[in-house]
């Protein structure tokens, strides 16, 4: 991570009685799709607004290509934001929205970059429509186009998929990824959806309570979470004392478990058909409950049955007591 386009160094944003962002340090590698993820109220949106310049940090430094920028006004920063509600100018056409930033810059040669970005986002032919005449997906493309045409150092995206309906969301997710590869601009995205974060990103930073919990590649964070919070936030988890195992790594068998596996005896509480698999809930003697996803074709279990719950040692996640 040597070549960081954007760097946050000990950034804090305090409101009276509330620390929205607390001593946050981050390095965003050039050309990456970097995602800030966390539950609502964790400070991720505030962080994005600090970077864009809509809020001033209480303390700390912001560096863009190694130069300080916390004193720059939003219009002096070579960054661009895709807003959650897209914030398209209702009085301007698609073309007017896309040209807005170029005009402010005083660019004369607008035709070529505008045509390119219209093609890239497949909205050519809609240039003279107004935002209210567009579908939700098209609005999002215009918002992206309006920012991308400026070729910003970093594109900031605030929950870019949240305003779309679930059908469209998965499709746009893949598209966003391919656009980012295509243009090579660094994307810094904020989301509360862990699945979105895992599927899209090169790097993920998990935030909680205004602080950074962990950064790393998606696999690394999912498989080797640094804290219980990260482990729990990114996916369901079965806790067996200080050891956590993800449901998809947990197996049930009616016979004895394989000799190399770790196992415990348990009683089936329920088995629910989910289509691609069964969702089996078991309980231990102590009353604790675990869940596992059992493939459809495996031997079916029924409630009340005694089973062995087992997993591989390498799928265990262990956390020091302090990380709680």
């Amino acid at each position: 991570m040597d070549d960081a386009v954007l760097e946050l160094s000990r950034i804090s944003k305090h409101y009276p009685g509330h620390r929205a962002v607390d001593n946050l340090s981050l390095r965003v590698p050039r050309g990456a799709l970097f995602t800030l993820v966390g539950p609502s109220g964790c400070g991720k949106t505030t962080t994005l607004r600090l970077i864009a310049g809509f809020e001033e940090p209480t303390s700390g430094e912001l560096l863009l290509n190694g130069s300080r920028m916390e004193h720059l006004r939003p219009y002096e920063r070579n960054l661009s934001t895709v807003f959650q509600n897209y914030a398209l100018f209702p009085h301007l056409t698609v073309r007017g929205n896309i040209e807005f930033g170029l005009l402010r810059r005083g660019d004369r040669q607008m035709a070529e970059p505008v045509r390119k970005v219209l093609d890239l986002l497949r909205i050519a032919g809609k240039e003279s429509r107004y935002p209210h005449q567009l579908s939700g997906g098209e609005r999002q493309r215009v918002a992206l186009a309006r920012s991308l045409v400026l070729a910003p150092e970093v594109l900031l995206l605030d929950e870019p998929l949240s305003a779309l309906d679930p059908q469209l969301r998965k499709q746009v997710r893949a598209e966003l990824r391919s656009i980012q590869r295509n243009v090579g601009i660094t994307f810094l995205m904020v989301t509360h959806d862990q699945e979105e974060a895992l599927s899209l990103s090169d790097h993920i930073a998990v935030m909680n309570g205004g602080r950074l919990e962990q950064t790393g590649a998606p696999q690394e964070i999912y498989l080797r979470p640094a804290t219980r919070f990260v482990a729990g936030f990114l996916g369901a988890i079965n806790w067996m004392e200080d050891i956590g195992v993800r449901p998809e790594s947990t197996r049930v068998s009616t016979g004895p478990a394989p000799p190399e596996a770790r196992s415990r005896r348990a009683t089936v509480r329920s088995a629910t058909f989910l289509g691609k698999c069964y969702h089996v809930e078991v309980s231990f003697d102590g009353g604790a409950i675990a869940v596992c996803e059992v493939p459809r074709d495996s031997h079916m279990v029924s409630p009340g049955q005694d089973v062995h719950l087992w997993w591989r040692a390498e799928d265990e996640m262990q956390f020091p007591a302090a990380s709680q």
């Binding site: 864009a52 310049g53 809509f54 006004r73 939003p74 219009y75 960054l79 661009s80 934001t81 807003f83 959650q84 509600n85 914030a87 398209l88 100018f89 209702p90 807005f100 930033g101 402010r104 810059r105 309006r146 920012s147 400026l150």
Partner: peptide, 13 residues
């Protein structure tokens, strides 16, 4: 909508 004013500044205005 306040975000329109932010968007404008964000786009360099």
């Amino acid at each position: 909508d306040k975000s329109l004013i932010e968007a404008s500044a964000d786009l360099g205005a």
